[in-house]
Nucleic acid binder design. Sequence first.
DNA 1: TTTCGTATGTAACCTTTGTTACCAACCAGG
DNA 2: CCTGGTTGGTAACAAAGGTTACATACGAAA
Lengths: 211, 211
Amino acid sequence: MDESADLAFQFEPALIAEIEEFGELRSFKDGDIIMDYGKYIRMMPLVVKGTLKVLKKDDNGNEILLYYLSSSESCSMAYSCCLEEKKSEVKAIAEGDLQLIAIPHNKLDEWLCKYPSWKNYIMRSFNERFSEMLKSIESIAFHKLDDRLIAYLKEKKRLSGSSLIKASHYQIADELATSRVVISRLLKILENNGKILLYRNEIKLLKAFDS
Amino acid sequence: MDESADLAFQFEPALIAEIEEFGELRSFKDGDIIMDYGKYIRMMPLVVKGTLKVLKKDDNGNEILLYYLSSSESCSMAYSCCLEEKKSEVKAIAEGDLQLIAIPHNKLDEWLCKYPSWKNYIMRSFNERFSEMLKSIESIAFHKLDDRLIAYLKEKKRLSGSSLIKASHYQIADELATSRVVISRLLKILENNGKILLYRNEIKLLKAFDS
DNA sequence: TTTCGTATGTAACCTTTGTTACCAACCAGG
DNA sequence: CCTGGTTGGTAACAAAGGTTACATACGAAA
């Protein structure tokens, strides 16, 4: 399992051996669902390659983006769900090609006391997820949609490493929990201000975008 | 330390003995600040009596209510902060009289492996906090202010056990991250609909309120 | 009782966002 | 090349919420 090489620097050798023994490497394609609302979670995903998108839905079916998980990150919400045998409150979808190691839930608990590096990793993970959630709340509560849209595009750029964002106005509207017309309107303003260029299913971020 | 009696049913005896030995019982009055932005956290609060209010502030000084902690709950954000020696991203304020047990951070870690009941408590705590945050996001992202106001008043009633809410329109506006005028407007509508009665610094929830 | 600070009521207006409707552009499959 | 489904552009309007301004009411302290 060469893919775990990235993790080598933060885990002790014995733990890596256990991860290789008990972890299951799985591959997903764009749009594949890794976790879903109301489903029990029996393993914790540890992202090896690609990006995982975590969403929250309300009673009326509206969905909103919570955060992304990328390489060597993991979903601590899954973790605590596993230990408590609870149903998921969120949905996780592969964004592009994705590889992850699925850690069975009985090992999670065992390793916590056995390997300090695992415990630290889990705690750091909890902390990062709390931070992401707080950022999300801050964004929704205090920032206007145009700012949130810009932040969204920047995040997409960071994750993909490309300033050509592949997404329809529809998808963006969904993830920001608004309507397509509103997103089209705001994008058009950004284009008129020379920050971006609009194509079908693609948005090109120009140099002026970052300022 | 009689106040820890409530905790007896979920912790094993040896752990309770340790909590009594190393935990420090502290009392606070309304408005006292238990955690603050950017401050290091060296102990984890375990609420014994009263209610603790957890807030998040953005760069421009706007604050918004995240959730309340009440009896036998604890702030898992403080927990992971402790272990990682990080600064707080939130503020915690006493709402009315408050008693808590401060657990020193070195014990947190030690007990995690020593006492299964402690580990379970901590994990349950993480889970509950994630749920609260998700509820908060759902509320802000999908619900209009009038619904959020009603939910806010209900929560206040639940926590205080009284249908007479003591708060100024100002405070409510702060916690919902809006302006006083807007809250006054919405409250007046609720009063006109026979759901509540308005007094200075007080709001009486009528029977019709719950429907 | 007077006075002052705080709390509330209300109107008028503005901005942001949501909604509906319709059209045009694009693209894949026949 | 036609055709139907998806995507994006735009206008017109509605609704929610934010802002400003000012009046009034209350209650504690002098």
